[in-house]
Design a protein around this nucleic acid. Structure first.
Lengths: 150, 150
DNA sequence: CAGTATCCCCAGTGATACTG
DNA sequence: CAGTATCACTGGGGATACTG
């Protein structure tokens, strides 16, 4: 369960992590390289299950099984792993009730809520532009097809 | 290169894709399931290399090799694949100059620029909250450590 | 220079079984 | 109910070699 040791990434980028090829521009100063903090979060957001979990937990308190049921395509293992990651990042709060049978509640932390909010912007962008993207893909595939079958 | 056929997903979610357990809330109506359009885009954004490429191409026109040099950790193969995906989605424009030696320019399309802009918000969020997240992780790992070595 | 084609590996994920 | 432990498999991605 330890990953803080940076395990085996693609390759050791080492020290130049904060020294891009150029920095005379105001954009692309993101520094979104693998080792970066930004990348860590982005990877979380990127994660299929994390995103679903955050979406489902928005303004709700759910139990393990409830989440499992709602996401439903997810396996026990992945739900656990996902929840643990989110908990570790302080995005989700896990509350164990010392009762029998066991009851564990999951909910977004305030930080998690702000992330949800930000992601919402991205989702909105997608919804607003999905037509354009679909068109672009169609055009691309079209080109591909016509050159393949003259 | 075909994914419109939905290949072999986790399992057939079927018809209830648009019917969550409840829908009396205004949030979580995202519908970010695997098959969804939103997920397709999110996956693109999520992609490590795509993100870097978009970042690097912001307000610039770069050649294949230039991109390769700037991303540097990337392999030829992945740069090609990434660029093709972005091109297909209409986010990046590929211009082939019929000269010798060959010259191909890459640049963001207007659509790509708007995506960059949106992603920027997410990156900003990350930068603003990375301290909190780091703290959360430290706290989590701390708990983990102290219970592991009493 | 700008790719395409191949081979290969291993990290992430699902399936299954066991436990407090 | 809410996990943890194990195993097995798949495909995403790197390394390498070849081409227009």
């Amino acid at each position: 369960m330890e990953e803080g040791t940076s395990k085996s990434l693609t390759h050791p980028e080492g020290t130049k992590a904060a020294a891009p090829a150029d920095h005379d521009n105001d954009a692309r100063q993101w520094d979104v390289r693998e080792g970066c903090e930004v990348r860590q979060i982005l990877d979380r957001v990127a994660d299929k299950w994390s995103l679903l979990a955050i979406a489902l937990l928005d303004r709700r308190v759910l139990r393990f099984t409830e989440l499992r049921r709602e996401i439903d395509g997810i396996s026990q293992r992945m739900l656990t792993v996902t929840l643990r990651q989110l908990e570790r990042d302080g995005l989700v709060r896990r509350t164990v009730h010392p009762v029998v049978p066991p009851r564990v509640d999951y909910e977004l932390t305030p930080l998690g809520v702000t992330l949800h909010d930000t992601i919402q912007a991205l989702v909105t962008w997608t919804e607003e532009h999905q037509t354009e993207i679909a068109a672009a893909r169609a055009a691309y595939d079209e080109r591909d097809t016509e050159s393949g079958t003259p």
